[in-house]
């Protein structure tokens, strides 16, 4: 455990080295969020669409932004480049489990993402008005769902980054992942806007847990048993992916060719 704690601390410190990048990125992310808010405000100005009113959509977008920012800054590109240039060789001679070590690094970067979320959500709320916070049980379940989101997001990023062992390229893998995740998680548009069959499939996929589940719980669009089922699906995928990732890793090791001597 001491080793993993050291990795969490080291990543948390190293994340500070990216503070200028983060500030620049912050501007971009904020513009995108403001643009989305502006578009939905126009669309929903007169009447709700698919049951979403403007204040609900505003809350949805803010939750989607928070969920999208968690486990997004540290980790994946670093891991990918280590695989691509062969520095992963050095990770393999350490007395730690590779998957847990990468998870520790993702946790280390979390604090700076939380700061970023707090700043952006704060600014957005100040500009567009506050959001309705759900009642205590809903809020508690929302918090659980956001916590489960951390390992879930990590695992989806981790497994897709392992694809670098086969593809020898990271950009393509990242774009493909973003396209799938944005559509099936409800990050781009709520799943209710998708055709029924696609929405149904997406709801049971691991991706729904990345945005749709916490957002719907926060909005109070699902509650009681239905909400519990959605969080259980989220947690189920965490377990399945944790062990599935180990199988992928075993195969990746056999594929490993270390580039550049």
């Amino acid at each position: 455990m001491r080793g993993y704690r050291a990795l969490i601390r080291a990543t948390a410190r190293a994340a500070l080295a990216y503070r200028f990048n983060l500030l620049l990125g912050l501007g971009g992310v904020l513009m995108q969020l403001v643009a989305l808010l502006a578009v939905w405000r126009v669309i929903l100005a007169d009447s709700p669409v698919n049951g979403f009113t403007w204040p609900q959509m505003r809350a949805y977008l803010l939750v989607a932004f928070a969920a999208g920012t968690v486990v997004s800054i540290m980790g994946d590109f670093r891991m990918a480049f280590r695989i691509l240039d062969g520095d992963v060789a050095l990770d393999l001679v350490k007395p730690i489990d590779y998957q847990r070590a990468r998870f520790a690094e993702a946790l280390g970067g979390l604090w700076i993402e939380v700061v970023l979320i707090a700043v952006v959500v704060g600014i957005a709320m100040a500009l567009t008005g506050g959001v309705d916070v759900p009642a205590a049980p809903g809020l508690a379940l929302f918090a659980v769902s956001m916590l489960v989101l951390v390992p879930l997001k990590f695992l989806i990023v981790y497994v897709s980054t392992l694809a670098c062992f086969w593809t020898q390229n990271f950009m393509g893998v990242q774009w493909a992942r973003l396209a799938v995740v944005n559509l099936f998680s409800g990050a781009l548009i709520p799943l209710a806007y998708l055709p029924g069959w696609l929405a149904g499939a997406a709801q049971w996929s691991p991706f729904a847990g990345l945005t749709s589940t916490p957002a719907l719980i926060f909005l109070g669009r699902v509650d009681g048993r239905h909400a519990l089922v959605l969080v259980a699906v989220q947690a189920g995928w965490v377990l399945a992916l944790w062990f599935g990732a180990r199988l992928v890793w075993q195969r990746a090791l056999r594929r490993l060719t270390v580039n550049g001597g």
Partner: peptide, 17 residues
């Protein structure tokens, strides 16, 4: 890359116990 050498070594110290 983003930490002083002393910290990199301290991480290894903890990894190897």
């Amino acid at each position: 890359w983003d930490l002083p050498v002393a910290e990199s070594l301290a991480v290894l110290r903890d990894l190897y116990g």
